[in-house]
Simulated scan of single mutants.
Amino acid sequence: MKLAVVAANGKAGSAIVKEAVDRGIDVTAIVRHENRTEAQHSLRKDLFDLTAADLKPFDAVVDAFGAFKLEDLPEHMTSLKHLCDQLAYSKTRLLVVGGAGSLYTDPGHNQELKDSADFPRDAYPLSKIMSQSLEQLRLREEVRWTYVSPAADFRANGTRTGKYLLRGEEYSTNDNGESAISYADYAIGMVDEALSGGHIHERISLIGA
């Protein structure tokens, strides 16, 4: 397998690169600045400058892009659209590092976690734009996408346990009533998904066991 990780220098991206490299996967880090990951190869290029030719060699592309300043949040939508445009009608899969705020809290899928009364208000703008990005992604039938939401508590410095639970569109907890996962365990699930080739045109979620 040949795997590319967009925004590989970020916390989620670098964790995914490490997991993939440790498993012997051929990984290319796509970064704007100098590569700081363990990837065997790197492509120094802005996400918005990527072309279909740049992405054609890969079996799968992981989109680990993140923007957190309020004025930059719309880039979640524009960057995902650009990647979809470049991967349209391609065999290359697109796996997106998503958010937890768009997970549904009711069986009818009418309410999202971000709309819960106790959802952190400071996280709402980011969750809202990522939810909108997911809705736009659902319309891209010509792209072989999979959207991977983490647990509600996404722990950058959490321990790698080597275990995770694969869930669907709804918010869920483990046997201890927790919705949490470390970046390292999330990376295991993301790489498993890249290797399995399943869940095309689906959103899945990963929580710690």
Rank of each mutant, 00 (worst) to 15 (best):
G99I: 03
S131R: 06
G10P: 06
E141A: 15
R121T: 11
S14D: 02
N9E: 09
G168F: 00
L47C: 11
D106G: 09
A7V: 06
E178A: 12
Y171M: 05
E19K: 07
A20T: 07
E141R: 15
E34M: 04
I200Y: 06
V97M: 13
Y183R: 12
L94T: 10
P120E: 07
R23Q: 13
V97L: 11
A123N: 10
L165I: 13
A29W: 12
G101K: 11
E178V: 05
R144N: 14
K81V: 12
R167F: 00
Y104D: 07
W145Y: 15
T51V: 06
G208E: 03
F68H: 10
G168W: 00
T161Y: 03
L139F: 01
T161P: 02
L73D: 01
N35K: 10
L134K: 03
S42E: 14
T51A: 07
E170S: 14
A117K: 13
L165N: 04
E141L: 12
E19D: 10
R155E: 11
C84D: 06
I30W: 02
G101Y: 08
V6Y: 08
G101A: 11
L166C: 04
F68G: 01
T37W: 09
K91M: 09
I16D: 01
D106E: 10
S196Q: 12
T37F: 09
I188F: 01
K128E: 13
Y104C: 08
G168E: 08
A156D: 03
G98A: 15
L137M: 14
G98Q: 04
S90H: 13
H41V: 01
V17G: 02
F154M: 04
E193K: 03
